[in-house]
Write a protein that binds this DNA or RNA. Structure first.
Length: 459
RNA sequence: GGCGACGUGGCCGAAUGGUUAGGCAGCGGCCUGCAAAGCCGUCCAACCGGGUUCGAUUCCCGGCGUCGCCUCCA
């Protein structure tokens, strides 16, 4: 049973399942107005890790993650670049999946697009107006947060503070809203001076588009139903996004998420949040093109999901080298001819105990590294039975968090022939030739291991 | 102004009121024709000041510093 920190109660508590054996989880997905960045990577990797782990314990995971394809930034960009907004969203969604596939992130079981749920959103808004929880103004329809008794559950701030607005910030839509914390459910289409069109759908109150917070509440309830198990996202989504999703459900008398999970940010070398507005972000595609994409996953596994993590070439590089060690062990064991045997249940149990404690991935992975070290020692000592058990264990535990370790490469015949020639040169004690052959293979990108029992090459 | 997180060894990063986190890098050794890989060993630690305690990196108070949120945001 997974115990998980719940943002609403601020406690670590068991993740209850509404339907026995099935975990229903909603992950707020990307707004596709630009290429995915490193921060998106943390989000998707983290919830992929959660899903893989739950599945590895025999549970079924209904993993719904949306694509937000209606949003001001999309419209702004389309206007700026003078092309249809659909082109922007299609293009960036393609980049999104390209990055997800490269990182080994499983596709969600459902991927709702906001544009497919506008009718349902209009129905929801009508319901809210009918219940006096929302009101119509000149520029759109707003949700009255005062109508939600426990508004502030996730952000843990007092309603009266939020109603008046905080900090020195300008309150968006202040001229129309009754209270600073009220948020837009529907935005009326503005006439454009240049005659261009922006995305617009009909509603009883006037053509327009839904607000972001209405999109996710509709899609999560439509696909997962009331009282679904877990709602997740980055810490920045706690407020206002998740608070506001929940406010709508509560105002409608509907049961919403039973458990809330939020992960911390990616930070740069100076410890600052990485984001596009700060100009210090890096795209995910850059990362997966230049590093082993698995290494970002391992870097996250070596940290806690509620702590900020530094992501840069140094830290990802360190993880990449660590991963190399795990790969090496897995393949060494295979090369040593170990039989396929079950893993070590005591290690698996210890691993799960760590994971079940609020996803203590760092200590869970420490167990994996320890198993790999002992496995290497077993290979060195010729204890192939032990090596086999540990190799299976390491492979299984890595797979349980989505890390697929390399298997033996397909080595081309000519490379094998060169390795064989290298061994012959060594046997003949022609070390100058042997060194030359090895240097050639290394120059071609092969990692060459020259041992007593012969030379092995791999990528 | 409100709410919250955090300050750990060269770097990243965990747990924990007393016992080795782990990874990367370094150093010594074993192995190797020499390397590589691997193994063994090893150096390096808790922002500052008080307090509680037999004992604090871990709890409490104060200070200093960093970061996040308070309707763009993973």
């Amino acid at each position: 049973m997974l115990n998980l920190y719940d943002t609403a109660t601020r406690t670590v508590r068991p993740l209850a399942m509404r339907d026995p054996g099935v975990v229903s989880v909603y992950v707020c997905g990307p707004t596709v107005y630009g290429p995915p960045h490193i921060g998106h990577g943390r989000s998707t990797l983290m919830y992929d890790i959660l899903r893989r782990y739950l599945e590895s314990t025999g549970l079924t995971v209904r993993h719904v993650s949306n694509i937000t394809d209606i949003e001001d930034k999309i419209i702004d960009r389309a206007a700026r670049e003078g092309r249809p907004w659909q082109e922007i969203t299609a293009e960036n969604e393609a980049l999104w999946w390209q990055a997800m596939d490269a990182m080994g992130v499983l596709r969600p079981t459902d991927v709702p697009h906001a544009t497919d749920y506008v009718t349902e959103m209009v129905t929801l808004i009508a319901d809210l107006i009918e219940r006096d929880a929302a009101y119509v103004t000149d520029d759109g329809i707003y949700m009255s947060v005062a109508s939600v008794a426990d508004y502030g559950l996730l952000t843990h701030q007092r309603l009266e503070d939020m109603l008046t607005g905080g900090g020195d910030r300008e309150v968006f839509g202040a001229e129309n809203k009754r209270a600073a914390a009220d948020f837009a459910l529907w935005k009326f289409t503005k006439p454009k001076a240049d005659g261009s069109s922006e995305p617009s759908w009909p509603s009883p109150w006037g053509d327009g588009r839904p607000g972001w917070h209405s999109e996710c509440v509709v899609m999560s309830l439509a696909l997962l139903g009331e009282h679904f198990d877990l709602h997740t996202g980055g810490q920045d989504l706690k407020f206002p996004h998740h608070e506001n999703e929940r406010a709508q459900a509560v105002a409608l008398g509907k049961g919403f998420a039973n458990h809330w999970m939020h992960h911390a940010f990616v930070v740069d070398a100076d410890g600052e949040k990485m984001s596009k507005s700060l100009g210090n972000f890096t795209t995910l595609l850059d990362l997966v093109d230049t590093m082993d994409p698995r290494s970002y996953r391992l870097l996250l596994l070596q940290s806690h999901y509620r702590s900020p993590v530094s992501v840069n070439t140094d830290t990802v590089g360190a993880a990449e080298r660590a991963l190399g060690g795990l790969d090496t062990f897995a393949r060494r064991a295979t090369d040593a001819g170990v039989a396929s045997v079950p893993g070590d249940p005591s290690i698996v149990d210890a691993f799960r105990a760590r994971m079940d404690d609020d996803l203590d991935t760092a200590n869970a992975m420490a167990l994996v590294f320890d198993a790999a070290r002992r496995g290497n020692a077993a290979v060195d000592a010729g204890d192939l039975a032990l090596a086999a058990t540990l190799a299976t264990t390491v492979r299984e535990l890595c797979a349980a968090v989505g890390l697929v370790l390399k298997t033996a490469d397909d080595v081309p015949a000519d490379v094998l022939a060169r390795a064989s020639a290298l061994d012959q040169a060594r046997a003949a004690k022609d070390f100058a030739l042997a060194d030359a052959l090895r240097a050639e293979l290394q120059a071609d990108g092969w990692l060459v291991e020259t041992t007593k029992t012969g030379t092995t090459v791999r990528r």
